[in-house]
C-alpha cells in the first residue's frame, strides 16, 4: 500500500549523476579529525588531572594551612640519618590497586632517580604501573586513561623536610605507530626523551607544579610526525 510512496521517493531522488565524494579529501579530513580529537581528548583529560594533582600538592605543601611546612621530627633517640622506608605502590589500568605480587611481574620499562623508581610491569595481559619511592606515598596519585594509552601522574612529596617539590611519574603504553615521547617538564627547557621499551614509555621528573607553565609530552611516529601531545 505504501509502494506508491516509495516509488515517488525513489523518483524524487533520481538524477543523472551519482554522488561520488572526493576520497582523497575525505581520508585527509578524516585523519585530521581523528588526530585533533585524539589531542583534544588527551589535553582535556590531562589538564583536569593536573589541576587535581596540583591542588592536592598545594594542600599537602601547606600542611593544613598553618605553621612551617616541615615533616614531623623523628622520635627521640632515633637517628635523623636513618634510611627511610621504601614503599612500592602498583595500580592497574583502571586505577585500582594491582593484585598482590604485581611488583614482581615482568618489567617492560623502568626509570629511576635518587628518590626511587617507576616501572611498567606486565603479566598475562594485565598491566601494573608501579612506583617505588622512599617514605610514604601521598594522596596525590592520579591516573589518566587515554585512547590506546594510559598516562600516570604519581606525584609524591619528597622525603626531605622542605617538602616543596613533587616527583611526577609519566608512564604508559605507547599509542599505535608511536616510537618516541619527548617531555618538556614544567618550567620549560629542552625536551627530554622518555624511556621507551617494548611498546611502553616512562619518565620521572621533579619540580614544583606550575599550571602557568605546563609540562608537555609530544608523541611521535618513526617518520617524526607528531601523533598527539599531553599537557600536564
Amino acid at each position: 500500500m505504501t509502494q506508491d510512496l516509495k516509488t515517488r521517493l525513489d523518483e524524487a531522488t533520481d538524477r543523472p549523476t551519482a554522488f561520488v565524494p572526493d576520497l582523497d579529501h575525505l581520508l585527509a579530513a578524516g585523519r585530521r579529525r581523528a588526530r585533533s580529537h585524539f589531542a583534544v581528548t588527551i589535553a582535556g583529560t590531562v589538564a583536569a588531572v593536573a589541576v587535581a594533582a596540583t591542588a592536592g600538592a598545594i594542600a599537602l605543601n601547606q600542611g593544613g594551612g598553618s605553621g612551617p611546612n616541615v615533616l614531623p621530627a623523628p622520635p627521640a633517640g632515633q637517628a635523623t640519618s636513618a634510611t627511610p622506608t621504601t614503599t612500592t605502590r602498583c595500580l592497574d589500568e583502571a586505577g585500582q590497586p594491582s593484585p598482590k605480587g604485581a611488583d614482581k611481574w615482568e618489567s617492560m620499562v623502568t626509570v629511576k632517580d635518587k628518590y626511587g623508581s617507576s616501572t611498567v610491569r606486565r603479566s598475562a595481559g594485565q598491566l601494573a604501573f608501579c612506583s617505588e619511592f622512599s617514605g610514604k606515598p601521598t594522596i596525590v596519585t592520579q591516573q589518566v586513561m587515554l585512547p590506546r594509552s594510559s598516562v600516570w601522574l604519581m606525584s609524591v612529596c619528597r622525603t626531605d623536610p622542605s617538602c616543596t617539590d613533587i616527583v611526577t611519574v609519566f608512564m604508559g603504553r605507547l599509542p599505535a605507530n608511536a616510537v618516541r615521547v619527548a617531555v618538556t617538564p614544567a618550567g620549560g627547557g629542552k625536551p627530554v626523551d622518555a624511556t621507551t621499551r617494548k611498546g611502553f614509555f616512562a619518565y620521572r621528573w621533579i619540580d614544583v607544579p606550575d599550571l602557568s607553565r605546563p609540562a608537555t609530552a609530544r608523541i611521535y611516529d618513526s617518520a617524526g610526525r607528531e601523533l598527539g601531545h599531553y599537557r600536564v
Partner: peptide
Amino acid sequence: RAEDATQEALIRLYR
C-alpha cells in the same frame, strides 16, 4: 546541502 551533510557524516564515520 545533502552532499555536504553526507560528506561531513562520512568524515565523522572515519574517526
